[in-house]
Nucleic acid binder design. Structure first.
Length: 502
RNA sequence: GCCCCUAUAGCUCAACUGGCAGAGCAGCGGACUCUUAAUCCGAAGGUUCUAGGUUCGAUUCCUAGUGGGGGCACCA
């Protein structure tokens, strides 16, 4: 892409670029000037009373070919195709609800308006139309243009009407072009919105309070990840963009809100891949007097609703319940033959992995890392149908409560589908002394060189000292959920403007 | 951070072993009052991502850089 050089936030340098001389742009500029010379405002402020083109179709479901009506409609949208007939032309108008064919006739519009429509307007222009519904001889419901208005002149050509925009770089950098040329892309992001609103409605209907906690935090926490750092000038202090909402939300549970959720962006300063965007959307909710079993029940209730909202039609069965539940230790042993609890140190487990001839690197890894690797490389990809993997080793989970029956484990589950983690939940740790000990353990890991520990958060511990009821909590990655429900593989496809190098 | 692939007209893509860079669509001029990837005639349209190098000659080969894609590493 040869774009003019521009510093961020500043207009391009004023030197002419090759693009300035592009004949295609010059032609559109000339048409813009011609419109103005004719007294036509190419960018009028409004066009009231527009109805979706889908309404026109809905009102005339069964007209026969050649049928005429008296019904008039005001529609607006982008011109996408033109099939000229000299004194009569067909044009396609696309709005959010779909496409409708327009018929422009010299005998209806008269010389001036007909000429303006065909000569001064281009594909990509946005127009408003007052038209009369009829059905062509070939049977297509269309609007005969009685009058029209230029609503916005397009000074750059749209992507090819038939081939569309294929170049992935342009599709992601210039998502507006992807959207305007692809109904499929428009539908995808409408589906994403439906998924989000379904999650919100689900929680709202069950008495959860939607809250907003700080994105800019003096101390980050609630997950294992490197944060983005920024500087707060007024306080002359570095702040972090949140990596999770967990700790603030639990303080609200301490405060007595009992059921809270937050749906918003988290930021993790990590690599970009098909399943990771550095800023991503997460919903976390916390529920007093509940535990991780209750969270599983919530997930089993939510996923079918989301699948329905997204019109999911893939291989995964969200309806059949309960979902499979399997212990982390058990599922690793199933897949690899290794009982990780029987090899309680990093060295022992590394030896067991080598003895079993499993091809994952074991150098420089402590026990928790090895367990995580075994699971994520050997087990996770096999979890296609919805599965709760339950009861994690304590060392991997600084905010989860000790398992009521199984020593060394905590009450935690992650829910998987299509080989991908979708959510992570605990019976929340509410014993302040134990929480303090967990933080201390994290600090020791950090001192040993681990860059992704959770920093000690005394304010959070003191909040727990005021008493947090038994609480179940969960975080669900909205982007992962959208991938799952839409059948896409790459997070870049389902995020409007994915992170790109500048 | 490492490895592989990739960048050609507004869009989608060609170009053999190194020999004048092509097509479809869009755009431009023209014909056409029921087309729908409209059709027909005509004329245009290029810093082949950038900077070097090899060569009589580079879109093609080499080196470096930049963007993008994939993989690994990292990571949920």
């Amino acid at each position: 892409m040869a774009e003019p050089d521009a510093k961020p936030g500043q207009p391009p340098a004023d030197a002419p670029t090759p693009e300035d001389h592009n004949a295609l742009l010059a032609v559109r500029r000339a048409k813009l000037d011609a419109l103005r010379a004719d007294g036509v405002d190419p960018f009028p402020p409004a066009f009231p009373g527009v109805v979706p083109t889908a309404d026109v179709r809905a009102a005339h479901p069964d007209l026969e070919a050649g049928a005429e009506t008296e019904s008039t409609y005001r529609v607006a949208g982008r011109l996408t195709q033109r099939r000229g007939q000299g004194k009569m032309a067909f044009l396609d108008l696309v709005d959010r609800s779909g496409r409708i064919q327009l018929q422009a006739r010299l005998d209806v519009l008269g010389d001036e308006k007909m000429a303006r429509l065909l000569d001064q307007l281009d594909l990509g222009d946005i127009i408003g139309v007052d038209g009369t519904a009829f059905v062509t001889r070939r049977g297509e419901l269309s609007l005969r243009v009685d009058d029209y208005a230029v609503l916005a002149k397009a000074l750059r050509p749209p992507p090819d009407a038939h081939y569309g925009l294929k170049d992935t770089e342009t599709r992601f950098r210039r998502r507006e072009l992807d959207l305007l040329s692809s109904e499929e892309t428009r539908e995808l992001f409408v589906t994403r919105a439906k998924i989000v609103s379904t999650v919100r409605r689900f929680l709202d209907e069950r008495g959860f309070v939607e809250v907003e906690t700080p994105v800019l935090q003096p101390l980050y926490g609630g997950a294992a990840a490197r944060p983005f750092t920024t500087h707060f000038n007024a306080l002359d202090r570095d702040f972090y963009l949140r990596i999770a909402t967990e700790l603030y939300l639990k303080r609200l549970i301490v405060g007595g809100l009992e059921r809270v959720y937050e749906l918003g962006k988290d930021f993790r300063n990590e690599g970009i891949s098909y399943k990771h965007n550095p800023e991503f959307t997460m919903v976390e909710w916390y529920e007093a007097y509940a535990d991780y079993e209750d969270m599983m029940a919530r997930v089993e209730e939510l996923l079918p609703l989301v699948a329905e909202a997204a019109n999911y039609d893939g291989e995964i069965d969200f309806a059949t319940q309960p979902y499979r539940r399997v212990g982390l230790i058990d599922v690793i042993q199933e897949a690899t033959g290794i009982d990780v609890m029987a090899h309680p140190t990093g060295a022992q487990l590394a030896q067991a992995i080598k003895d079993a001839h499993i091809d994952i690197p074991t150098d420089d890894l402590e026990w928790p890392g090895l367990v995580d690797d075994l699971f994520s490389k050997k087990v996770e990809p096999t979890l296609i149908q919805p599965t709760f993997v339950v009861d994690y080793p304590k060392a991997l989970s600084p905010f989860a409560k000790d398992h009521r029956d199984k020593p060394g484990l905590v009450e935690r589950f992650e829910v998987f589908a299509n080989g991908m983690e979708v959510g992570n939940a605990f019976t929340e740790l509410n014993d302040p002394d134990e929480q303090r000990a967990r933080f201390d353990a994290q600090v020791r890991l950090a001192e040993a060189g681990d860059e992704e520990t959770t920093p000690y958060d005394e304010v959070f511990v003191q909040a727990l000292e005021h008493g947090m009821p038994p609480t179940g909590g969960i975080g669900i990655g909205i982007d992962r959920l959208v991938l799952l429900m839409t059948g896409h593989k790459s997070i870049r496809e389902i995020v409007l403007f994915p992170a790109m190098r500048d």
